[in-house]
């Protein structure tokens, strides 16, 4: 306990010092990330040499918006042993992921900072700034938030009537949709759509049957961008004739799933993508696209 609180005091001191800009680049804390979402925030904010390792999920392009950049860092499997071998100044991870590793590392005296999944746009801003503070890169974090807000302010759908809120349904593999309160729900609403997945009041990830999809009369059905290289029944459902017969606009790939799997500055691009889609719908033909 003594050691842990000692580390906390030291960390608070470090944060104060960083705020005053008294730290040279060479003394920036090194970081080891165990979670896909903290991986991406760290990669965007950290200075060269600060990142010791990121999780292996970060190189998967279907999950990570920064898969290409992620390949340049050593990957970890989220094990406490890897952290101990690495001796970073700071460990960042998700609040719900690898709890055993988190507890073990804390008991070993490591500073572990956990991030909850981002569910709102404000949450994303807060997490960018928090990561900036942790890494002593507050200015970079502020620039990222400014860029995020600038992207959100873009309005390719400016030509649409203000009251135009088309009904959109995300239909993922095996009938998974995005329920109320999820990050995709936030993005869909921010782009001016009604998220039909939030209607049944399920919350979180929800399952819907094909029949419910048709009965909800969506204006837009959003399918995943691309089929993986290998076939699975999960993708076969997307070519079901009932989807085509529903009269809804079937869209593939308007949003890269990696943009809203984790919250980050890139999530604003998902909002812009959906706004662009909205501008292309009948009922919204005008300038601004």
């Amino acid at each position: 306990m003594v050691r842990r609180s000692g580390i906390r005091v030291a960390a608070a001191l470090l944060a104060v010092l960083a705020g005053t800009g008294a730290w040279a680049d060479g003394a920036l804390p090194t970081v080891h990330s165990l979670n896909l979402c903290t991986d991406q925030l760290a990669m965007l904010i950290a200075a060269p040499g600060q990142i010791r390792s990121i999780s292996e999920l970060a190189i998967d392009p279907s999950l990570s918006a920064l898969a290409g950049q992620a390949r340049t860092y050593p990957a970890n499997r989220g094990l406490a042993e890897e952290v101990v071998a690495d001796q970073p100044d700071l460990v960042v991870t998700g609040a719900w992921s690898a709890r055993n590793a988190t507890d073990l590392l804390r008991s070993l005296g490591y500073r572990v900072e956990t991030f909850r999944p981002d569910l709102t746009l404000d949450g994303i801003r807060g997490d960018i700034l928090r990561m900036g503070d942790l890494l002593h890169r507050r200015d970079t974090a502020r620039e990222l938030v400014a860029g995020f807000d600038a992207e959100l302010a873009r309005a390719p759908d400016a030509g649409c009537p203000a009251a135009f809120h088309p009904r959109l349904l995300v239909f993922g593999p095996n009938g998974v949709t995005e329920g109320a309160g999820t990050l995709p729900d936030t993005v869909i609403k921010a782009a001016g759509f009604v998220n039909l997945g939030a209607e049944p009041g399920t919350g979180g990830m929800a399952f819907i049957s094909l029949e419910q999809v048709i009965a909800m009369r969506p204006d837009v059905i959003l399918l995943p961008a691309d089929d993986p290289a290998a076939p699975a029944l999960a993708q076969k459902l997307f070519s079901h004739p009932a989807l085509k017969a529903s009269g809804a606009r079937i869209v593939r790939g308007a949003v890269d799933a990696a943009l809203w799997t984790c919250g980050g500055p890139f999530t604003a691009r998902a909002v812009t993508g959906l706004k662009r889609l909205k501008a292309s719908l009948p009922g919204c033909r005008g300038p601004g696209s």
């Binding site: 279907s62 593999p173 095996n174 009938g175 049957s209 094909l210 993986p228 290289a229 290998a230 076939p231 699975a232 029944l233 999960a234 993708q235 459902l237 079901h240």
Partner: peptide, 18 residues
């Protein structure tokens, strides 16, 4: 394909859904 392993249940305990 990441979804294939979830489909074991379908092939062992079938379904007429969709």
């Amino acid at each position: 394909n990441p979804f294939a392993s979830y489909e074991i249940i379908f092939w062992l305990l079938g379904s007429l859904k969709d």
